[in-house]
Design a protein around this nucleic acid. Structure first.
Lengths: 207, 207, 207, 207
DNA sequence: CATGAATGAGTCTTCATTCAT
DNA sequence: GATGAATGAAGACTCATTCAT
C-alpha cells in the first residue's frame, strides 16, 4: 500500500514554482483528457518539467492527483465553513440562503475542474479525501443549524447531511449536458428554495 | 473514434446466455477490483469464457462497460418512470412520496453496484448514458408534476431537474463512509420531506 | 514480496517452444551482457518474442532468471548425485575421483554459462536456489562417504560440506582470467588429489 | 567506455574525510540494500554529503564501487601476503596452518561485507580487481611453498592456485544459509586439514 | 464459433549525471 | 567547493486487441 504524502519540502525557491506548475498542469490534463489519460508524462510535459521532477515531489501519480483533489475540496470546505460560521445565531431562512450561495459559488466557480475531479473522488485516496471534506461541511452546517434563533432542530447532523447531499447532486446535474433554458438564471434561487423548504420542514417550533 | 454498438445480436439462445454472463462478470469485477483493474481478461475469466468470445459480442472493452452501465441506469429510469406514471393526477404530497421511494428503492437496492458504476459514468460513453437517463427521469417527473390535482407548477421541468439532482446527491452520501447513527432508518423519510417540502415551495396555488 | 512461480502452464504446443526459447535467450543475454544489462526487452528480442509473451509465463524478470538458474543448478546436482550413488560402498579413493570428475564435468561443460549465472546466485531468489542445490549435493556426498568400505568418517556432513566448497571455489578460479600454463591439463588431476587428500585426512581407520 | 580513476586526489584533510565517509556509506548501503539498490543518492545521503560532492571525487558510480571493492580485496591480499612471508623457510604444515588462518581471519572478519561485495566482483571493473588480488595471493603462496624446508613442490604456482580456490569456495558456503551444527567451531580446523592434506599430497620428497 | 497465445504501444517509476546557484 | 533540483533515457510491467488453431 503506497503512501501518498509529499516526498520532500521545497528548500530552494524554484521548487515552489515547480510544484505549483505541476498542480496546474494536473488539472489541465484532467480537464482535457480525463482521469484515464491523465498520465505522468502528459502532466510533466504540460507543466514544462520532466517526469523525474514530478517524482521528486510526489511518490507516485496517485499522490499527485490526490493532492490536487484535496486542495480543491479544501477550498470549498473552507468557503462553506466560513459562510456557516458567519450565519450562526440567525434565523433559518438566512442560513439556508447563505449556505446554499456559498456552496454554489465555491463549487461552480470552475465547473470544468469540478467535473474533472469528479471521477477522481472514487479512485484510491480520493474517496477518503471526499468523505473528509463532506464531514467538515456537514459539521459546519450542523453547528450552524443548532444555533438557529427561531427554530430548533431535532437532529441537526442528519438534516445537515441530507442538505449537503442535495446540493452535491446538483453539481452532477450541471455537467451532465445542457440544462433547460432559463435554468442557469433561476438555478441558485431554486436551490435556496430547496434547502429553505427542507430546513423549515424539519424544524421543531419552540413552545 | 471507436464505435460502441454491439457486434452481433443474440439470435441464438447460447449467445444470450453468454452476454448475460459477461454482464454479470463485468459488474462483479467492477465491484471487486474497480474500473482501472476491470480488464477484459478478468471479465472473461469470471464469465467462464475467453477474451476472444468477449470480442465476438462487443467491439471493445468500453462498449461492454457502457452496455452494463446503460442497463443499470435503464432499470432505474424504468422503475422511477413507472412510479411517476402511477402517480399522475394525484396531489403533490403523494407524488413526492412515490417518486422518492421509487428512486431510493431502485438505486439503493444494490449500493455496491451503484458505487462501482459511479466512476464509469464519467468515462467515455458513460456521461452520455447518464445524461440520457437523467432526462428520461426528469421528463417523467415533470409530466407527473404537471398533472397535479391540487397545485400548479410554474416550471415543472426545472422543478423536476432540481428534485432529481437532490436525490442523486444522496447516493454519494451513502457510500462516502459511515453515516451518523440512526441515519439509515430515517433516511427515506427525510428524503420524502426534502422533496415534498421543495414541491410545496414551488407550487403556485390555484386562484 | 513478489512471487517467483510460473504463471501458467502451457496448454497449447507452441507454448513449450516459447518457454524454451525464453530460457535459451536468457542465458545468451546473461552471457553476452551480464546480469545488470539482462533486461526483459533484450531477452524477448533475443528469443524472437515480445515482452508480453515473456510475462505470460513469468510474473516478473527475477522469476525467469531464477528459473534458468534453478535448471542449471539442478542439472549439476543431478549429475553429481548420480555419480555419488554409483560410488557408494566403494573405497574412498574411488569416491574422491568419481565425485570430483562428476562435478568438474558438469560445471565446466559450459563455463560461460556458469560464469553468467555466478552473479545471479546472489540476487533475490538466486541465493535460495543455490543453497538448495548445495544441500542436495552435500547430502549425496555425505551419504556416499558414510558408505565407504575402507574408512569411517566422524562427521560425513561436515566433510562433505568442506569438500563441495573446495570444488566450488575452483569454478571462480577458472573464469577469473587466464590460468598458468599447463593448468587446464592438470586441473582435474589436481582436484582429485585435493579431495582425496582431504578425505584421507578425515578418515577414522577401522580398528 | 568511462574511466574508473578517481577525479582528484585528497590534498586537503577535508577531502580525505569525505572520501572515507563515502567508502563507509557505500559498504553500508551495499550491505543493507544490495548492489541493485545501491544508488548514488543513497550513498551520498548516508555519507552526509550531496550527490554533487560524490561526483567531485569519482567520475561515476562504478568507479566508487570499484574503489571500495579494491580496498576490501587489497586488505585481504595484504594480510594473507604478510602471513605467507612470515612463513617462508618453514615446514609445510606450518605454512598450511598460517595461510589458512590468515585467509579465514581476513575474509570472515566481516562476512556481511564479503557477501555484499560478492555480486560486485562480477560487474564491470570488479572481475579485474578480483583477478588481480587472486594473483597477488597466489604469488605469495607460491613463493612461500617454494621455500619449504622439508618438501619440494613440482609446480608451486599450480598448487597455490588450487589451494586459494579451495579456500575461496568456503566463503560462499558460509553465507549460503545455515551451516550444519558444530560447523563454525570446527571450520577453521577442517580447512587447515584440507590445505595441509593437499600440500602433503603434492609434495615431492627430497631424495 | 470458441480459444488463448502473442503482440507491442503505452504506463509508471528509477537513477546516474549535470549544472545553476 | 558544495548543493540539490532538474533531467530524460531506460527498465519493468500491463492490457486491449488480434488471429492462427
Amino acid at each position: 500500500m503506497p503512501r501518498l504524502e509529499r516526498r520532500k519540502s521545497p528548500v530552494q525557491a524554484r521548487s515552489a514554482v515547480t510544484i505549483e506548475a505541476l498542480h496546474a498542469a494536473t488539472i489541465q490534463v484532467l480537464v482535457r483528457d480525463g482521469l484515464q489519460r491523465c498520465t505522468t508524462t502528459r502532466i510533466a510535459e504540460r507543466a514544462g518539467a520532466s517526469v523525474g521532477t514530478l517524482y521528486q515531489y510526489y511518490p507516485n501519480r496517485d499522490a499527485l492527483i490526490a493532492a490536487v483533489l484535496e486542495r480543491h475540496l479544501s477550498a470549498i470546505a473552507a468557503a462553506v465553513g466560513r459562510a456557516c460560521e458567519d450565519s450562526e445565531d440567525r434565523p433559518v431562512s438566512d442560513m439556508a440562503s447563505a449556505f446554499t450561495r456559498a456552496f454554489v459559488g465555491a463549487k461552480l466557480r470552475d465547473v470544468h475542474v469540478a467535473r474533472a475531479l469528479y471521477a477522481v473522488a472514487q479512485e484510491r485516496g480520493g474517496a477518503e479525501a471526499a468523505a473528509r471534506m463532506r464531514d467538515r461541511i456537514v459539521s459546519a452546517v450542523a453547528k450552524m443549524l443548532a444555533s438557529a434563533t427561531d427554530v430548533r432542530f431535532d437532529a441537526p447532523a442528519l438534516t445537515a447531511t441530507i442538505a449537503v447531499g442535495a446540493l452535491i447532486g446538483q453539481v452532477q446535474t450541471l455537467f451532465c449536458g445542457p440544462a433547460p433554458s432559463g435554468f442557469a438564471e433561476r438555478f441558485e434561487a431554486e436551490l435556496v428554495a430547496l434547502i429553505a423548504g427542507y430546513f423549515c420542514a424539519r424544524r421543531q417550533d419552540f413552545a
